[in-house]
Design a binder for these strands. Structure first.
Lengths: 114, 114
DNA sequence: AAAATATACCTTGAATCGCTAGGTATAGTA
DNA sequence: TACTATACCTAGCGATTCAAGGTATATTTT
């Protein structure tokens, strides 16, 4: 299909990077934020989230640091790197194209009446 | 993530069923039509297409028949069944939800300014 | 006429990705 | 004390895409 490999992954990554654009977050928080911002449309599973975060950090799209919460619990925060912001921009463009492509087809093709 | 399993597959199936809504088509033709209607955004591979068509037919979402082209070549046409139209409706709804969810997140969440 | 390309169908195998299902540990609540 | 919520993690399954191959016929080029 082109669009890199895997669209779901493309979307998951896009979504997570987007969250981090508005500030550093820890994994568990991202799941909640994603649900909230999507009006409960997305409930990402931990088994989906953590491997993606680890892969993104390994590729230097994210960096992480540990921080103690007021509660006393330790949390692992993730932060967008420069590279990460570039990836986010690419993923956004990719999503726009994909999204437009699907909608064009659903509307009956490029030459369909508006 | 919910949304059935796999979004790409969800999209591929949605796209193919949508094509067949406007008339019976054979596989090779679907690839061309998909490309045309999406303004060349989508170039589905044969290795992606045929297994999907076979699976959809097996599940009675599609039926097929062979027909000779004027050229003399034989083509295998696929036709939407009643079940297939229902599946299409479901997939469309699913896409709308997903698409809205992603855009909500990209715009900064449900409570972002319009 | 021969060779190359386009049409048209198909399958196998590698790679990728999400999810289920498990695990660990700590803080708060019943 | 036990249960739930928070917070992190991983292994393995299933599903899917694509590259790469195969077969065969029609058309175009050389």
């Amino acid at each position: 299909m082109k669009f890199d490999k895997g669209l779901m992954a493309g979307s998951s990554t896009l979504l997570l990077l987007t969250l981090l654009e508005s500030g550093d977050m820890y994994g568990y928080q991202m799941i909640e934020e994603l649900s909230r911002r999507s009006n409960d449309a997305f409930q990402m599973q931990e088994g989906t989230l953590y491997p993606i975060l680890h892969a993104l950090e390994k590729e230097k799209y994210l960096s992480s640091y540990r921080q103690l919460a007021p509660s006393g619990r330790e949390r692992k925060y993730y932060k967008l790197t420069r590279r990460g912001r570039e990836l986010l921009a690419d993923k956004r463009t990719e999503w726009e194209k994909f999204h437009r492509g699907v909608n064009d087809v659903l509307r009956g093709g490029a030459d369909a009446l508006a």
